[in-house]
Design a binder for these strands. Structure first.
Lengths: 149, 149
DNA sequence: CTCCATTTCGACCGTGAAAGTCAAGATGGG
DNA sequence: CCCATCTTGACTTTCACGGTCGAAATGGAG
């Protein structure tokens, strides 16, 4: 029940690009430093994310990466699925590519696994990167604190 | 976000023992056949489950395994945790052994991962093997069907 | 046009865990 | 005593994860 570190890196990279929110692209090295990601590995990851249509790139000097869509329109779930594959505790309850198991139809755990998958989906598919940023700005305000009357 | 096949085998083995519900032990070979588990591997798994206090064994001819507690008192979650380790998308939100990440305190994803973990726990810790059996007996009745007025 | 910073592409690789397998011994019933 | 069964622990094999690396293509600036 764990996400791969590659997936977590991908999410953090997209978060960094969400924060940047500018027409100017952000360089790989910059993203890597802000989010503590090994540069060479990040190259691979961003290449993959580009293939998935999440980010765009500009080459050459002053090049770098930008989001392909605004943060409000990217959910955490879709990134996770793209990088790590279907979100499901076992293959037979994957919504995209369900795989028949040995107990066709009378699997004792089918309903249960389905509920687990649904519970996860309910969280990850309803959270966008914009939500995440908002949540963090609120938290920061709380932390600085004491400015309300 | 997947459970290991070892863990799934463990759950199915305990389910088989729950169905058996008798003072007479169930043999490894029997469990293996009913639940489609490689016998040699099941030996390892049952040994581990015994160490966790989930099952008891009786040696010799007419030996085998029985549940150490009634099915109402074993949740799926505790078995999963015992076999696969903490249930958490990332280590920092594990409730049993949280591991500090690089962003002590200001991790942008901390709250999010926590909600994911909670969603999973809500399902797996509230479901016992007795619940699972009841669910399946209901389903079977539905399938046979047409007996209600 | 040339130089340099940057992305791009594909190959490469070491480690550790997952998923089993196996042999030999201990134990208990008949 | 004999046989069926659990017990223990070592062993193996395969593969995905988590990266690295080198060289080429590209675009902006001067």
């Amino acid at each position: 029940m764990a996400v791969s570190s590659k997936c977590y890196y991908a999410l953090r990279a997209i978060y960094a690009l969400s924060e940047h929110a500018s027409a100017e692209p952000l360089k790989i090295a910059e993203i890597a430093e802000r989010q503590q990601i090994p540069v060479r590995f990040l190259e691979v990851i961003l290449g993959q994310l580009k293939g998935g249509g999440f980010v765009r790139s500009r080459r050459g000097a002053e090049g770098g990466y930008t989001l392909a869509r605004p943060p409000e329109q990217i959910t955490i779930g879709e990134v996770m699925r793209y990088v790590d594959g279907p979100i499901a505790p076992v293959d037979c309850v994957s919504q995209s590519r369900p795989k028949e198991c040995d107990f066709h139809g009378h699997c004792h755990f089918f309903g249960f696994w389905g509920r687990v998958r649904q519970a996860i989906s309910d969280v990850v598919d309803r959270t966008t990167f914009a939500d995440l940023m908002r949540e963090n700005s609120l938290k920061h305000r709380e932390y600085v604190g004491d400015w309300t009357i």
